[in-house]
């Protein structure tokens, strides 16, 4: 079973939504490896579901990352300033992928 990722970015100054859903198997190998590596380094399945500030932050992006794999399902919600450093790398990569998917519509 391939790992499936659902990514969604909402909010921000422009209020635009960026999202994509893909299986790691669909990606070029180096990108798939990079995603897996980041999920490992983050210990994604061990992260709290909500890494959010106490009040909704103004004009920041809100991120929802859902991972389905043989390890199970897990979802993480975070924002620009609440996301830990390593999470930012994953977000950056997911943005890049989501923008690529945007072209295909």
């Amino acid at each position: 079973m391939s790992t499936r990722i659902r990514y969604e970015r909402t909010g921000g100054f422009a209020g635009l939504k960026l999202s994509c859903t893909f299986d790691l198997d669909d990606l070029p190998e180096d990108q798939a490896d990079k995603v897996s590596e980041l999920l490992e380094e983050l210990d994604f399945f061990g992260l709290p579901e909500r890494m959010l500030p106490s009040h909704p932050p103004v004009d920041q992006f809100a991120y929802k990352i859902e991972v389905e794999s043989k390890k199970g399902n897990h979802r993480v919600l975070t924002t620009d300033s609440a996301a830990p450093e390593k999470m930012r790398e994953l977000i950056h990569l997911l943005n890049h992928l989501a923008r690529g998917y945007r072209k295909k519509d």
């Binding site: 920041q60 930012r88 943005n95």
Partner: peptide, 28 residues
């Protein structure tokens, strides 16, 4: 702020501005 950050915000103390999607080629 960051790379390819297409946003700006006020964080409670200051303003923060990104550069847009400057990491993409001009045609995109």
């Amino acid at each position: 702020y960051l790379k390819g950050y297409d946003n700006a915000f006020w964080n409670g103390q200051q303003m923060v501005y990104g550069d847009g999607d400057e990491d993409l080629p001009p045609s995109q």
